[in-house]
Amino acid sequence: MEADEDLAPLMQSRRVREAVVSDDAEGSQSEARQQMRAWREKFGTERYRPDADAERNLIMLTSLADESHELMRRDLSRQGDWLVEHLFSAYPDDEVLLVLVDPADGSKVFTQRDVAGFYEHSKRRLVAQGTGFTLRHEYVHALHYGDMERRQQLHAFWVLEGLAALFEYYDYEPDGSITFLACAREEQMQRLLASSSLIRWRDLFSMSQMNFVAKGRNTYAHARSIFQFLAERGHLDAWYRAYVETFDEDSTGAKAFEIVFGQPIERIERRWQEWLRDRPRRPYALRDDQMALGIEPRPNENHDGVKILNVLPDTPAADAGLRRGDVIIAIDGETTPDFLDLRYRLMRIEPGASITIRYRRDEAFESVVIRPQRLSSP
C-alpha cells in the first residue's frame, strides 16, 4: 500500500500504539477499556484494531485501513482541540471508547432506521457507522458530557443536540476559525419558515427529551439553526460561558441569550427569524458555474470516502484515470467522508486551479492531480 508521506510516520506508530493499547487493556479497569475488550470478544479481535490518544483520553477501535484511520484520528483531534479551546475547557476526565462499526456488523449494531451512531455516557462508549457527520456529531456529545460531569450539570436536551448537530458540517478557515456549513437540516428550516411552522424558542428550550426526539426532524433543525445563528454572530463561545455560569438560575439557556445580546429573548428570536429569511436557498446545490470532477458518486460501504459509481467520458476524472469503484478519501489533504463534504471541497476551488485527490483503489492508496472544470463547460 502506497502511503501519503505526511501520514507514513503516524501509520508506523499506529502499529506500536496498537500493541501498547492491547497490553494495557489487559489489566485496566477503566470503563472504556472494559467496553473495548467486550466489543472485540463479541465482534472479533482481527477486524477491530485498537488505538489510543492519551492526550485526549480517547480509545479507538476501527477496521479502517491505516491511512483512513490516521485521517480520522487527525480530524477528531482538530475538532476536539477546537471544542476544548472554545467551549468545554478540557477533555473528559475518563477515557472514552470510540468504535467505528465494520460494515459487516452494521445491521447487528444499528437496529433502528436512520440511526447511524450513538454515545452512551454510562459506558463511556461512542459508536458510529463512519468517519463523517455522524461521528462528528457524537464526538461533541462525548466531550460535552465530560464537561457537564465536571460542572455537575445536565444541560437542556436542545442544547445537547443543537451543539452536536452544529458540528455535523463545518470547515476550517486559514486563520483557524470554523465556518459552519448548510446541510439538509437547513432545508427543513426553510420549509418550516415558508409554512409558518417555526417552533417558538421558549417552547423548544423547555421541551422534554421525549418530545424533542418525537419531533426530531423539526427540532434538530431548529436547534442547529439557532446555534449557527449564534456562531455567525460571533457569540457561540460567550453564550456557552454565560449558560454554564447561569445554569442554576435558568437551565433552558434563555437567560444566557439575553446576557450575550443585551436584549429580551423575544427580540433575539425575531432577529434569528430575519437571519433565517435572508439565508440562501440550498447553498450546496449543484450550480452551472461550480467546479466538478465528472463522476457519479455513491455512498461507500466503509464510510470513509465517496465511492465512484461511474466516471463520465471526457471529464477531468476520466483524463486523470479515475475508475468506477475508486473511493475518494481526501482533496488537498482534507477528508471527504460523504458526498456533501466532497461538494463543499469542490465549491472552494477557484477556476483553473489544480487539486490533489487522494483515493483508494481496492487496498491501495494513490494520489492524482486534477484540474476540475465547470459543470457548464462543453
Results as ranks from 00 to 15, higher is better:
S367T: 11
Q29R: 13
A156G: 13
L163N: 06
S376G: 06
E46V: 00
R361D: 02
L163A: 05
A8Y: 10
A242D: 08
N211A: 11
L322V: 12
P280I: 00
Y139I: 11
E245A: 08
S28F: 10
S376R: 14
Q152K: 12
E5S: 06
I355T: 01
Q188E: 13
L309S: 10
E85P: 03
R185W: 13
G294P: 13
D237E: 09
E232H: 07
D94M: 11
E31V: 15
E301D: 10
W239T: 08
D114N: 15
R191N: 12
V109S: 02
Q228W: 12
E70W: 07
E258L: 11
K108I: 13
G253L: 14
I331Y: 13
F133W: 12
P50D: 00
A116S: 13
T134D: 02
Q29E: 15
L193S: 04
L58T: 07
V369F: 06
H121G: 03
S377D: 13
M148Y: 06
K123A: 05
I265F: 01
H121Y: 05
I308M: 08
F88S: 08
F118K: 03
Y359S: 03
L181C: 08
R125S: 10
S376Q: 12
Q35C: 01
R282A: 04
G117S: 11
P299M: 10
E266F: 12
P372G: 01
I328C: 03
R191W: 09
I265T: 04
E18C: 02
E168L: 01
V16D: 10
L193M: 15
A32P: 08
G352W: 07
F212A: 09
N218C: 09
E173F: 04
K307L: 10
D278N: 14
S30H: 13
A128G: 01
E266Y: 09
A164D: 04
R47H: 00
I226G: 10
H235E: 15
I357A: 05
E232S: 08
Y243H: 07
M148E: 12
L58Y: 12
L154P: 05
G305Y: 00
Q35F: 01
P174G: 07
V96F: 09
L100H: 00
A317T: 11
F257E: 12
E46A: 00
N57L: 06
R113T: 14
M207C: 10
F133E: 04
R270Q: 12
V84A: 02
S122I: 06
R150S: 08
V16P: 05
R233E: 06
A194I: 14
Y119P: 01
Y240I: 00
A318G: 13
R270W: 04
A128E: 01
L163D: 06
R191Q: 13
Q188D: 08
H222W: 07
P337A: 09
R56L: 06
F261K: 09
Q79C: 04
Y119D: 02
A3W: 15
Y359K: 05
S22I: 02
K123I: 05
Q35P: 03
G262C: 02
P316W: 15
E46R: 00
E161W: 03
N310F: 05
R271M: 15
Y48A: 00
E173V: 04
L375K: 06
P92W: 10
S197I: 12
K215T: 07
R113Y: 14
